[in-house]
Simulated assay, not measured.
Amino acid sequence: MRWLFGGLAALIILVIVYVGSAVASLGNLADAVRSGDGAGVIVRTDVKSLTQSLADQIVAAYLERIGQTREIRPSERMLVRAAGLGIADAMIAKMLTPDHLTQLLKTGKLDGVQDLPPIAGLPQLGTIDTKNVLATLGRFRFVEPVEFAVRISDTTDADSYSEIRLHFAGSGWQLAGLVLPSRVARELAATLPVK
């Protein structure tokens, strides 16, 4: 019986450390965003995964847009997806500089960047009170053992909903995804050329 209680206590401690480390990492990321520390934000970001996350959303919105005017064949969908990812990657590379990413997460907008449409309407990561652990945990959603989603929008409405993805990579949790509000993804996709 003692073995059972010891195992249960160890499991509870592991879960607390596991979730607590994610909450602490979110707090450190939010602090870097609030202070405008672009280098600190990039250190806490898996840029490759974040790029892929944004590119997938922009291309999906692009395919949805051209699908409204005509049917897209599966082979065409694959070609458009491949070409669109290349174009979207170039756009996203400009968004993910240390200063631009920090500005986007801090203010919810990004403008005045050459060859990039103005972006506005993203929730601000810095407004989350990460010191209030219970409220912060209410924003967490388990995705898989090495990934949490954290809602940064105040609403769950699809056009306004936004979340970040924290992924455990080696030594800690990193920003690995940003779910854009649908409206923002559509606006970015609208800048891609229609074929």
Results as ranks from 00 to 15, higher is better:
A190M: 06
I119P: 08
T107H: 14
L105W: 06
G172V: 01
K106Y: 03
K94I: 04
A82P: 00
G170V: 10
M78I: 12
L8I: 11
R73A: 14
I42M: 15
E163D: 11
L26E: 07
E147D: 07
V194W: 04
L192K: 03
L175H: 02
K109R: 13
Q68N: 13
K109T: 11
M95T: 01
Q52W: 03
R2P: 08
L105E: 06
N28W: 10
A158N: 14
E71V: 11
G108K: 10
E144A: 13
E163N: 13
F5H: 15
D157T: 10
V17M: 05
V179A: 14
A22E: 02
Q68S: 13
V150D: 04
G7S: 14
A82H: 08
A158M: 12
E144D: 11
V133Y: 08
V23S: 05
Y62H: 13
T51C: 03
G67R: 06
G112M: 08
T191S: 14
V194P: 12
L63P: 05
S171E: 15
E71P: 07
V179W: 09
T191R: 12
K106E: 05
F168V: 00
T69K: 15
L188D: 09
A190I: 00
E187K: 15
G27Y: 09
D89C: 05
G112S: 10
F5K: 15
R186G: 07
L110V: 11
L166W: 02
Q52I: 10
E144M: 13
V19C: 03
L4C: 02
G172M: 01
V23W: 01
I119K: 09
R70E: 11
D129I: 00
S25R: 01
P98M: 08
K106N: 11
L166M: 08
Q57P: 07
R165E: 09
E147I: 05
E144R: 15
V113K: 04
G126R: 02
T102G: 04
M95F: 05
D31H: 05
D37A: 11
S35F: 04
L188W: 05
L110N: 02
G112L: 00
G170R: 11
S153D: 09
S75R: 11
Q103V: 10
S162W: 02
G7V: 06
L101I: 00
R65I: 10
N132S: 10
M91L: 14
S153G: 01
A39N: 09
Q52R: 14
D111T: 12
Q174S: 13
L134D: 04
Y18T: 00
I152K: 02
T130L: 03
Y62N: 06
R183W: 08
G6D: 15
R139S: 01
G126T: 02
V194L: 12
N28R: 13
S160W: 12
L14R: 03
L166G: 03
Q103N: 11
G126E: 02
T107N: 15
A158T: 12
Q57N: 02
V33L: 14
S53M: 01
L175R: 00
R139D: 01
N132T: 09
T97F: 02
G20D: 00
A185D: 02
L14S: 13
I119Q: 04
I66N: 13
L11N: 04
I72G: 06
I58R: 06
R2Y: 12
I13Q: 07
G67I: 00
P118Q: 09
R44H: 02
L4W: 09
A83K: 15
